[in-house]
């Protein structure tokens, strides 16, 4: 009877390699926490951008400039925080949860436009921007907390 089983040394080496690989993977997933202002900055900048471009004042150049600056800042903040620690992590959680996180601000934006019924375009733009900004702030803070749990 011939056997070709791995030796105990092979098995030990395999286990050590598996542990090292798992440790490395977890290290990549564990990065510094996002700054405390991240969620608020995202929400506020989002609200400014959409509050300006969706309102009846969206033809006013100074406001468009403000919206443009806010948009650049929104993208910049996202890139800065998303790549902190030199690692861009994968989205966390099941697919349904990730879709929900993206959908909540969109739904809030849509619901905000109900304010246009009594208050017109201005009311709708402000309400939708504020609700969507607040929702984005909340889901960002929640997602960052989930990522560290």
């Amino acid at each position: 009877m011939t056997r070709n089983d791995p030796s105990a040394a092979d098995a030990q080496a395999a286990r050590q390699a598996l542990e090292a690989a798992e440790h490395a993977r977890e290290a990549a997933r564990s990065r510094p926490a996002a700054p405390g202002w991240y969620g608020a900055a995202r929400g506020l900048l989002f609200a400014v951008v959409f509050g300006v471009i969706c309102g009846p004042w969206n033809g006013e150049i100074p406001l468009l400039i403000v919206a443009g600056v806010a948009l650049v800042a929104f993208l910049g903040v996202h890139v800065l925080v998303a790549s902190r620690g030199g690692v861009i992590t994968m989205p966390h959680g099941p697919v349904g949860q990730r879709i929900l996180i993206q959908a909540i601000p969109v739904v809030a934006f849509g619901l905000g436009w109900l304010a246009a019924l009594p208050f017109g375009q201005a009311g709708g733009a402000i309400a939708s921007a504020v609700l969507a900004g607040a929702a984005l702030w909340a889901v960002t803070a929640w997602a960052e907390g989930q990522g560290r749990s």
Binding site: A20, A21, E22, A24, E26, A27, A28, G86, V87, M90
Partner: peptide
């Protein structure tokens, strides 16, 4: 293996 495993835990790493 360490580098591959590290990269498997993220989308990109610097």
């Amino acid at each position: 293996l360490t580098i591959m495993a590290f990269l498997s835990g993220c989308l990109e790493a610097e």
